[in-house]
Every structure is written in structure tokens, then in C-alpha cells.
């Protein structure tokens, strides 16, 4: 709650101090539908705000969570992902996977304390030029309202977004989300149907755990920290932190360092031994 107050206050101050602030929005559009829709929008001269910068991909399914989270970490105020309408994907099922990936991104944004509204998924067909201008106009206004991303001003949020990015690259989350669409539409390898709610629950738990572990690694990378310190900074119960630490140590991802009296400190092991 306090964090919210802080942001609102901060956002206001920022707006007063810097009236020139213009949101920076990056859009990833699939070549066949939404990029073509954006083209038609231009051909039809539908106008929209100048804030968005578009990146073309062949299919929205290409937009991995890592790409979006990395760009948010780099300071984007908003990300638009555009694909073909469901069942109209040029690559048949690509956008179904996009949907699942965007769900994961939103879960991770929640964990990181970034407003979910900063990420928007839209289906725009090649014939929906006007819709494209409306989508961009609305989204730009929404980002205007949200103000600058906290990544610019809050180091903890930045660390959390970095942790979200790392979490999105873990085997567990990638495998779960990579299989999610087929598990739901075709069932599992044994031909059993999968309960969507149960699967969502599994992914929710995995997201939370992987995010917390990634955040521990992110924080303990900067300086060695104790379980208690980590628990306080992360606002996670210490027993939970400890369990993460045990697992991270088993996987040689974190090492005990400079015990202060009876309190052990932990430091992230950099892969390849680099600093």
C-alpha cells in the first residue's frame, strides 16, 4: 500500500517537474496482420500519437517474454504486442502461444510491481487500419495516465523487472508456458485432458517461486545478503527465502559468504565466474 502512495505522489511530482515527458512505447507487430493493419492505417491516413515505435516480427509468437521484459527494464513505458485474430494466424496457432506468453509476462509484471496496463496484447487484422489507430491512441493515453515507468526512478523495481526477465528464461516457466496451449487443446502426452484451472494454478505457483528465486539472485548479486535481509527487502517470509536459498545452493547458483557472527550471508555465483 505504502508503495502505491509513494508512486502516486512521485508520479505527480514528476509530471509537474517535467511537463515535456512523452511516453516511450514500443510495439511488436506480426508481419501478416497487425503490421499490415498499421500499413493500412497509414494508407487511410488515420492519425495517432507519435509515441509508438514499431518493430516487425514474422509472428507475434516470436515475442518471447524475455524480449518484452528486457525492453521494459531498459525503460520503455509501454509495450504493445500485435497479432492476427485468433484462428486467423498466418502460422495457424502462433497467436495462441502469444496469448499464453503474454499471460506469463503479466504475471511477472505483477510480481515486479509494474502496472499490467503497460503491456497490451491486441489482435489487429490487415483490414483493421482504423482499429490500429484507435488501439495506439487509447494505449498512448493509458500510458500517459500511468506516468513514467518506475524503472526510471526506483532501483528496487528495476531489480524486480530484471528478476522477472530472468525468471521468464528459466526452464520451468518456459517449458510450462511452451506446453500450455497444447496441454489445454490436445491434452497431455498420455491423452488425458488437462484441467485449465489446475494448470493455471501450477503456472501461478511456478511464476511466484521462479520470480522470488530470480530476485534473490538479482539482489545477492549486488552485495552478499542474509536470509533475514532478503526477506525484509523482498517482503517474503524468511522460511520461504530459506527454502529458495537451499535450492539455489543445491544448484550451485548461490554461495555462502563471510558469515557475520552466526548469520550466514549469500552471494550469487556468476555463471562462468565473471563479475
Amino acid at each position: 500500500m505504502t508503495e502505491k502512495h509513494h508512486t502516486a505522489h512521485h508520479g505527480k511530482k514528476e509530471a509537474e517537474a517535467d511537463k515535456e515527458w512523452e511516453p516511450k512505447i514500443v510495439g511488436f507487430l506480426c508481419n501478416w496482420c497487425s503490421y499490415a493493419g498499421a500499413d493500412l492505417c497509414g494508407v487511410s491516413r488515420f492519425q495517432y500519437p507519435t509515441n509508438i515505435r514499431l518493430v516487425r516480427v514474422m509472428c507475434s509468437t516470436r515475442v518471447s517474454p524475455h524480449i518484452v521484459l528486457d525492453v521494459l527494464e531498459a525503460g520503455a513505458d509501454g509495450i504493445l504486442v500485435g497479432g492476427c485474430h485468433l484462428n486467423d494466424c498466418h502460422y495457424m496457432t502462433g497467436n495462441y502461444h502469444t496469448e499464453k506468453r503474454v499471460n506469463l509476462m503479466k504475471r511477472l509484471l505483477r510480481e515486479a510491481g509494474i502496472e499490467e496496463g503497460r503491456l497490451r496484447l491486441e489482435w489487429v487484422s490487415a483490414s483493421e487500419g482504423e482499429k490500429f489507430s484507435k488501439v495506439v491512441t487509447e494505449f498512448t493515453e493509458e500510458i500517459q495516465k500511468l506516468g513514467p515507468s518506475k524503472v526510471h526512478t526506483d532501483d528496487m523495481v528495476k531489480a524486480k523487472v530484471a528478476a522477472a526477465d530472468d525468471a521468464s528464461e528459466t526452464f520451468r516457466l518456459k517449458a510450462l508456458v511452451g506446453k500450455e496451449f497444447n496441454l489445454l487443446s490436445k491434452g497431455n502426452a498420455y491423452g488425458d485432458t488437462v484441467d485449465p484451472e489446475k494448470l493455471t494454478g501450477i503456472i501461478d505457483v511456478a511464476t511466484e517461486e521462479e520470480f522470488e528465486r530470480a530476485l534473490i539472485l538479482e539482489l545477492a548479486r549486488i552485495r552478499p545478503m542474509s536470509v533475514k535481509q532478503l526477506g525484509m527487502v523482498m517482503e517474503v517470509p524468511t522460511d520461504r527465502v530459506l527454502r529458495h536459498i537451499v535450492l539455489l545452493r543445491q544448484n550451485s547458483m548461490i554461495a555462502m559468504e563471510h558469515p557475520e557472527g552466526f548469520t550466514p550471508l549469500y552471494k550469487t555465483i556468476e555463471i562462468g565466474g565473471e563479475q
Partner: peptide, 24 residues
Amino acid sequence: CGCCGATCPENAITMTHYTDQQLL
């Protein structure tokens, strides 16, 4: 399409001409 690239849990797949590096 790049679906496999965004899916691969081991990050072992690179999409030619649409690499992470290029897109980022």
C-alpha cells in the same frame, strides 16, 4: 514463425534474421 525460438526452455534455438540480439 519463431514459435520454437520463444518456446525453447534451454534457449537453444535462434531465429535466423530475427534473433534476440537483433530485435532487442
